[in-house]
Nucleic acid binder design. Structure first.
Length: 571
DNA sequence: ATAGGGTTAG
């Protein structure tokens, strides 16, 4: 291991959850002066409006929401002398920033009808919106229009297209654009281009390509900056390659790139995911000693970590300290806290947090409702869960696939498969496509009822749609078939799964081993050990549950270990 | 161009 510039990598290994909590609290006590010295949020729009205005040219209209934007837009179209395209671009750009991408498209279409010719900037905004709507086909046809109108795409345009292509796994197209940029002289890839490619590679799970690109940058193609490093560090952390992330962190500092709050927040999240509380504590202390202050993102991660460890009460004290120090907890922070109470089954406390959020204006979102619904479902309180579900639409929030799936799971676990099916069709009626998890949940519901045929029917229905069954789905059905001692069917599905390019994991093999062991004959016992050898040869290693199956079987069979009976008797 | 929260399997 290369020598570390910081203490972080050496402290990587110890666990002490309560100490993480006390450090967080300690930070508030000892560094309160530092927290107060943080600059308050500047308001660029206000300052812009105070600038002297040129005669006859109004400053850009700032739109606050979609309704406002449409009002301004319609008013512009009604004018006898249509405003210039630049004023339209300002509105479209802001609506795009508010993430109302389809609204931008419809505005663009209206501009066409009213005879407002688009500029290159208009077309780039539209391309970006189609990318966000996962409609790259349209993005590319707008690009064609841009060429036809005699415009040149800018680095922005190319970066947007690369990002969109990678999001849709259209790697070849992204590579083509990148190569075109490398060749043509006037539009060289920028550091943003590299950042986009690196992020795309990580999202596709291609860490090697991302690191390669970083090295290429270092060779002189383009200097990596803090954002590039943050992107890679965060991706490594999400991949639980936290040691690599910490090494890159040291490397980056030795090259004179100073970390910021995003760097530390990613690293803290990374070590927290692995339960390395002591490393998290060190990082927190280290960042503050460098005058880098934890913000609402950082604290939200700490709140979430405490909650996931069952320390919701302690998380609540962190939230209280945040408020005291003017770091306003937001929807994400409260959602984490609420989930923490739900996890402990303390629904009254969870509901209290929820009501607190309702008091503060528009603080709840679909996730808040889903968390509470999930809490009630896990406690088998379906009436309460349904009440929250209905209240969500009363408040004008549209429940999404996850919310529906959560309720479906609740009903399935209580054996109320008809209620689950009703929701399953209802969600589709509302235009929410079931995803893999939804199918998996309902499939598990049928399996639980012993209805393997219905489960397999749903599997086929998934395949007909664009929704490919994943490992979880196959594992669910394989396990269910094994429980019904339908080993041949289970093994057939197992081969089918591998033909579809999905590799088994320890759960798949444990289900199959359990299945053959249940038959309880010597021949099957041999088959079980064959499966065990097979999984190990694939580098899949048995865990506690796998061994439990073997131990259980040996104990029931007696004899296999001679006179020893593992201290357990069935009779 | 970079960081935080909700649903499925032995």
């Amino acid at each position: 291991m290369p020598k570390m510039m910081t203490a972080t990598a050496s402290s990587y290994g110890s666990r002490s959850m309560p100490s993480l909590h006390s450090t967080v609290v300690f930070l508030f006590n000892d560094y309160s002066a530092l927290f107060h010295s943080q600059p308050s949020n500047s308001k660029p729009n206000e300052s812009r409006n105070t600038h002297p205005k040129q005669f006859g040219v109004r400053g850009p209209t700032t739109v606050t929401n979609l309704e406002h934007a449409f009002n301004v837009f319609d008013e512009m179209l009604r004018k006898r002398h249509l405003p210039s395209v630049f004023r339209f671009n300002q509105i479209l750009g802001q609506v795009a920033k508010l993430k109302h991408h389809s609204a931008v498209i419809s505005m663009y279409n209206q501009m066409g009808v009213s005879g407002v010719g688009p500029s290159d900037c208009t077309l780039t905004i539209v391309i970006n919106c189609f990318c966000h709507l996962n409609q790259m086909g349209f993005s590319f046809s707008v690009l064609g229009q841009l060429f036809k109108s005699g415009f040149e795409p800018s680095v922005y345009t190319f970066n947007i297209l690369i990002n969109g292509s990678l999001t849709e796994n259209r790697v070849a197209e992204a590579a083509e654009i990148f190569n075109k940029m490398m060749k043509t002289g006037n539009c060289k890839p920028s550091v943003v281009t590299f950042g986009t490619l690196i992020k795309g590679f990580y999202r596709m799970g291609n860490n090697g390509a991302a690191i390669q690109l970083l090295r290429k940058m270092e060779e002189g193609a383009c200097n990596p900056n803090l954002v590039i490093c943050n992107t890679i560090i965060d991706s490594l952390c999400k991949d639980t390659l936290t040691v690599d992330a910490l090494n890159l962190f040291s490397e980056m500092m030795s090259k004179g790139i100073s970390p910021n709050v995003i760097t530390y927040t990613s690293l803290i999240h990374g070590v927290c995911r692995l339960g390395k509380w002591k490393a998290a504590t060190r990082l927190l202390n280290e960042m503050v000693s460098r005058n880098i202050f934890p913000n609402v993102h950082t604290f939200s991660i700490l709140v979430d970590t405490l909650c996931k460890e069952g320390m919701a009460e302690e998380a609540q004290t962190v939230v209280e300290r945040m408020i005291e120090r003017d770091i306003e907890p937001n929807t994400v922070t409260y959602n984490s806290l609420m989930d923490g109470y739900c996890l402990r089954g303390e629904m009254d406390k969870a509901k209290k947090v929820f009501e607190l959020m309702l008091c503060k204006d528009s603080m709840t979102d679909v996730r808040s409702y889903t968390i509470l619904i999930n809490g009630y479902c896990k406690r088998k309180m379906m009436d309460e869960a349904m009440m929250i579900f209905l209240e969500m639409s009363r408040r004008g929030l549209v429940s999404d696939t996850v919310a529906y799936t959560t309720l479906i799971d609740g009903f399935c676990k209580l054996g109320r498969i008809h209620d689950a099916q009703k929701l399953f069709s209802q969600m589709q009626g509302c235009g929410h496509l079931p995803n893999g998890v939804t199918f998996g949940t309902l499939i598990k519901g049928f399996c639980r009822m012993g209805n393997n045929n219905a489960a397999i029917q749903l599997l086929r229905k998934m395949e007909e749609g664009a929704c490919n069954p994943d490992l979880v789905i196959y594992n669910t059905i394989i396990d269910s078939l094994c429980k019904d001692t339908l080993i041949v069917d289970a093994l057939n599905l197992f081969s089918e799964m591998m033909r579809n390019g999905i590799s088994p994991n320890v759960i798949t093999y444990t289900s199959l081993i359990h299945g053959v062991c249940r038959l309880g004959k010597w021949k099957e016992w041999k088959e079980a050990t064959t499966l065990l050898n097979e999984m190990v040869s694939r580098n899949i290693f048995p865990d506690v549950q796998t061994f439990n199956v073997f131990v259980d079987t040996l104990c029931k069979e007696g004899g296999c270990w001679g006179s020893a009976n593992c201290g357990r008797n069935d009779d």
